[in-house]
Design a protein around this nucleic acid. Structure first.
Length: 883
RNA sequence: GCCGAAGUGGCGGAACGGUAGACGCAUCGGACUUAAAAUCCGCUGGGGCACCCGCCCCGUACGGGUUCGAAUCCCGUCUUCGGCACCA
């Protein structure tokens, strides 16, 4: 299907770029001309999986490559690096199965990924390539850990962790979805283990505030804000009647303190055992045991409230009233203080609980109907006074302020800001991760963090990679590695946990600036010149974790003077997912009869392939069968079978997956259509941020466009012979060119690559009609095409007689003279409806245009006999009459 | 349930509040060819009148509103996608 010799061309130019190091960017200390402006355009680096590149990868990479190539032509120094996020579970699992050291697998996968990326013609500076698994790299990951520890931001804690038997490891909260491991879907249970934890909460406020200056998608900013989850309120102390104990609660509604009719402790709360009365002890004990056995999933899935009375009472500090203390699992041990004051009148969860257990509901804010539901809105306070304090008549905001003032004055409470964000569990029981630079002396004294001079702490060359099945990782079994001596000479054991996958990706964007530096993480001169990253492109799945963790580390590095910017990534764009080709699915029952889509119900599963489907009317199983596009037709909102229009079918594109068999392999596309076609198609599909389905026919379309462009230059019969004309371009031709320059330039700047490509297609369509393309237009056009289809552009540039790469040729300038034409077409509306178009001189006066508009035959018909009340004149576009 | 994004031809998608459907795909027709492929040219939202240029009505998920004029702005509803989910 090759309509032009893309194989030869692409191989030749890839070799040229590599041989000539066309895209190598020198370091600042090594001769970079820093009088030029800097542009740092970064891709989220991939995990080099054994499956190789996916068509989703080149989407973002092509977008950044277009920007990189464009900015070079505009005179910027461009930093456009690539590397590998190479620690991770798959290599370790492969190691378990085959005994191959993960380093070997990783190296192999990286080589394949690099080859595949190079086959797509990306203009990376490969001299800056890095891998997180390289000891020269992770030495600095470890170094950052030392700095974190120095500043008290890394600590060992006995924390409830998500122990996953199936993976033989502990998972981070965010790696657990619905009580199962995100990877593999194994059950997860709680266990208490001593683990390294990073104090990210100390940076919560800064992480929140500094979001304001960033050019990021609003959804991502919102997700980060929610994840940090700052809420302002108060801590209130309740004395426990008959015990020398105080229960402190956190509340965002201190104004409702008078409405607190009971309290709830989380089952894990440390005071539960102490305050429970003997009579209630068996019931409480049972309840606590039961919740401990439950996974998070089971705890959250039943929406009905459960709980047990402890028999104890607390004293409401605002009025001295006794408040019964309950234990219930709807209160989380990990948020706030693990205890709440329950105000059923004005909190929906407390209301549900009070209803279930027949607890009193007191109105303290007027305006709702408490017999029906909790009232959470604003209103005047009632029933809220005592000998100590009164809020009656105040609305929420004033009542809050008044109560806070009283709490602080009386010592019963204090203002408090709380966060959903928790400290970051920073240890994994895995082999294939960064070792901690930490040893534990055999005598049982605390951990010793190694000095900088001992870095890097390397992973052992051999080992048994199997999870030990205990919370200790596989490294524990590598005796010759584990047994060591502490810096002071005492025998010691190494920390056998490793760092999580996020560690290496938290700071890689800095190492690209100075990848070979043996003395420093990054030289200040490099950091100063390049940072921050001007454009960062990657998947929305990293909206919270990677981006939040990286921002945290960046701020720590800022505090210790390694970097000079508060934020690492100035502008962020998420590319949308590429789905498989649209598929039509019909449903049939066990007897083989078709069932309409409307009559099919399905279970809600995370993974589509796990869904069960049945006929809604009788509950019998049905199965989906694929039907060809030719078998269906559009009817109403959806598609139906041509053979039976009452049977609606499902028409949708699915996520690419091996099990569905709809994965498109970029290698195949490159082989058949070439890299330029793949690049162009991925950009032409639609807006970068949008989810969009793959279409092989669409690839064909852009390939045809490239072939048409090729034929403008090269005679298909003789190859080599140029078809360009020496004629001076006409004014019309120059106008076409300059409009294209303008449009392509604007669209690249705004990352609207699909419409930039449309503009070039229009130019080629016009040029095809001209018969021959004048040389004076051919050069600028090739330069416009270059960021998108660099191989073809280089080849054509070369064939036009240029001897060097066009990678640094100046970007074509628009000439304003050719952006306007002498005449313009103007729409004529009467009462807002289009009634005709007229062609007038571009600089025609308002009166002339109006006169011409009135003279238009069809317009005149509508104006005839009607009084014109208003005339609208939009220069160069439209006139309107209101009658 | 909450937060965010989005609903436009057969399909992917274009449209500073100003001629809706650019560009591409698919379909159909024509040219070239012994034929096919490739290529080139043309048509293509729906309906109606005219069938010679043309003209009219409807149409951007649905219902309202603002405006001379709304895919675009405002209010409400529905649907889809992504995220969060007892966070006090």
């Amino acid at each position: 299907m090759a309509a032009y010799p893309h194989h030869d061309i692409e191989a030749r130019w890839q070799r040229f770029w590599a041989d000539n190091q066309t895209f190598r960017t020198p370091t600042v200390r090594n001769g970079l001309d820093t009088s030029k402006p800097a542009y740092y355009v970064l891709d989220m680096f991939p995990y080099p999986s054994g499956a190789g590149l996916h068509v989703g990868h080149p989407e973002g990479y092509t977008a950044t490559d277009i920007l990189a190539r464009y900015k070079r032509m505009r005179g910027f120094n461009v930093l456009h690096p690539m590397g590998w996020d190479a620690f991770g579970l798959p290599a370790e699992q492969y190691a378990i199965q085959t005994g191959t050291h993960p380093a070997i697998t990783t190296k192999r996968n990286i080589e394949r990924f690099r080859e595949q990326l190079q086959a797509l013609g990306f203009s990376y500076d490969w001299s800056r390539e890095l891998a997180t698994t390289d000891p020269d790299y992770y030495r600095w990951t470890q170094w950052i850990f030392l700095k974190l520890h120095e500043r008290g931001l890394a600590y060992l804690d006995e924390v409830p962790v998500n122990w996953c038997e199936g993976l033989g490891t502990v998972l981070a909260n965010e790696e657990v979805i619905d009580g199962k491991s995100e990877r593999g879907g194994f059950p997860v249970e709680r266990r208490y283990l001593k683990q390294w934890v990073l104090r990210i909460t100390e940076y919560a406020d800064r992480l929140l505030e500094d979001l304001d200056g960033l050019d990021w998608p609003t959804s991502t900013l919102e997700m980060q804000r929610h994840w940090i989850g700052r809420s302002e309120g108060a801590e209130v102390d309740f004395a426990v009647d008959g015990h020398d104990a105080t229960i402190t609660v956190f509340t965002t509604r201190p104004d409702t303190l008078f409405g607190a009719t009971y309290m709830v402790l989380a089952p894990e709360h440390s005071l539960v055992a102490q305050i429970t009365t003997d009579a209630q002890r068996p019931a409480v004990q049972d309840y606590v045991d039961e919740t401990a056995r439950k996974s998070d999933l089971e705890r959250t899935e039943g929406k009905e409230k459960t709980g047990v009375f402890t028999g104890a009472y607390a004293v409401n500090p605002a009025n001295g009233a006794p408040v019964p203390i309950w234990v219930a699992d709807y209160v989380l041990a990990t948020y706030g203080t693990g205890a709440i004051m329950a105000v059923p009148g004005h909190d929906v969860r407390d209301y549900a609980f009070a209803q279930a257990f027949d607890l009193p509901i007191v109105e303290v804010v007027a305006g709702g109907d408490l017999s029906a539901e909790a009232f959470v809105g604003d209103g005047p306070h009632v029933n809220s006074s005592s000998e100590y304090v009164s809020l009656d008549g105040l609305r929420n905001a004033e009542a809050k302020a008044a109560m806070l003032a009283w709490l602080e004055a009386s010592g019963a409470g204090r203002r408090k800001v709380n966060y959903k964000l928790r400290d970051w569990l920073f240890a994994r029981q895995r082999f294939w991760g960064e070792p901690f630079p930490v040893v534990f002396p055999e005598d049982g004294s605390g951990p010793i963090v190694l000095p900088e001079s001992e870095l890097p702490v390397r992973l052992p060359e051999t080992g048994d990679y199997r999870p030990s099945g205990t919370p200790e990782g596989p490294l524990a079994a590598v005796t010759e590695w584990v047994e060591t001596v502490a810096p002071d000479g005492r025998p010691a054991r190494r920390e056998t946990n490793t760092m999580p996958n996020w560690a290496g990706s938290c700071w890689y964007y800095l190492r690209y600036l100075d990848p070979k530096n043996a003395d420093k993480l990054v030289d200040p001169a490099e950091e100063n010149y390049w940072m921050p990253v001007d454009l960062y492109v990657g998947g929305a799945e990293h909206a919270v974790l990677h981006l939040l963790y990286a921002r945290f580390w960046h701020k720590v590095l800022y505090d210790i003077g390694v970097v000079t910017t508060k934020e690492p990534f100035q502008k962020l764009v998420h590319q949308g997912m590429i789905l498989g080709e649209v598929e039509y699915t019909a449903f049939r029952d066990e007897a083989g009869a078709f069932v309409s889509r409307d009559d099919v119900a399905e279970t809600e599963e995370k993974d589509e392939m796990d869904k069960t489907i049945w006929r809604a009317s009788d509950g019998r199983r049905v199965e989906g069968v694929r039907v060809a596009e030719t078998e269906v037709e559009k009817k109403g909102d959806g598609f139906v079978l041509k053979s039976d229009a009452t049977i609606r079918v499902e028409a949708r594109a699915h996520k690419m997956s091996k099990s569905r068999g709809n994965v498109v392999n970029p290698d195949d596309v490159v082989k058949e259509y070439g890299a330029d076609s793949l690049r162009l198609y991925e950009m032409f599909m639609g807006p970068l941020e949008q989810v969009k389905p793959w279409s092989t026919r669409g690839v064909d379309g852009v390939h045809r466009f490239l072939a048409r462009a090729w034929r403008l230059f090269v005679d298909g019969e003789t190859d080599g012979a140029t078809k360009l004309s020496d004629d001076a371009p006409t004014k019309e031709q120059l106008q076409a060119l300059h409009r294209t320059i303008q449009k392509v330039t604007d669209d690249i700047e705004a990352m609207r690559f699909n419409t930039a490509i449309s503009a070039m297609m229009e130019f080629v369509n016009a040029a095809t009609k001209w018969g021959a393309l004048p040389k004076a237009l051919a050069g600028p056009f090739v330069l416009l095409l270059a960021p998108f289809a660099p191989h073809m552009a280089e080849e054509l540039w070369h064939r036009m007689g240029n001897t060097d790469t066009l990678a640094y040729a100046p970007w074509p300038e628009t000439d304003a003279r050719y952006l306007t034409s002498d005449t313009v077409e103007i729409a004529v509306q009467v009462n807002g409806k289009l009634r005709g178009t007229i062609t007038v001189a571009a600089d025609a006066s308002k009166d002339d245009v109006l006169a011409q508009a009135r003279a238009h035959e069809n317009v005149a018909k509508y104006l005839d006999g009607a009084a014109v009340k208003k005339e609208v004149f939009v220069p160069r576009r439209l006139v309107g009459f209101v009658v």
